[in-house]
Amino acid sequence: MSGERGGDALVRLFHVSKSYLAGTWALRDVSLELRKGELAFLTGPSGAGKTTLMRLVFAAERPSEGQILILGRNADRLSPAAVPALRRRIGVVFQDFKLLPRRTVEENVALALDVVGVPRRQARARVFSILKRVGLQHRRFHSPLSLSGGEQQRVAIARALVNEPEILVADEPTGNLDPELTLEIMDLIAGAAARGTTVLVATHDHALVERFGRRMLRLEEGRLVADQRPTGSPT
């Protein structure tokens, strides 16, 4: 990426604080960097500030204090008109999938391509390809309501990845899934990191963090209290 400062760091937070209510802090003085292709887990108890941090990364919130650089853009200085262009470079996955129940699987995934004006024919081919990657090409004309929880999350991941984003943000993506499906979904997300996407996954699941052995960021009461990298990885 040309124009990005901080080497290959795609996300940089400098002493970021966020307050929704005067006197209380959802995030307090958080500084961190996420590099290209890095997969990091964000852990911490409920209310620790995980979702707030995720929302800051996909520019749904602005910091109350500090600076945040996303893909080389200062998020605090982004005009509202510039936010959509940034969001197109970031895929987002939620615990509750956020699929449109009255649209087919294909239409749900194609939304991300519609907004950037990809021609329909080309969009269908790309949607087919990404659905094939998540193993759901045969369900593309189905309603999300007819799919299992794991399948719905795979559709949400397909929608998040179909645009080949540089950053993928997943907020408790396996929170509603059983252990077997959790591994399936995490393999897909880790696969995106292996392809060069920077991935930040918020989770409560310590076993998952340990199993994947990747960088772990721990938040408590809005503060970053731990930043553990797997042994042997560059700091």
Binding site: R87, R89, V92, L100, L111, V115, N163
Partner: peptide, 16 residues
């Protein structure tokens, strides 16, 4: 509103 939220999330402009 869910549809609006999702569209904004995937980078749709207000016009879109």
């Amino acid at each position: 509103r869910d549809e609006i939220e999702i569209l904004m999330l995937v980078g749709a402009t207000r016009t879109f």
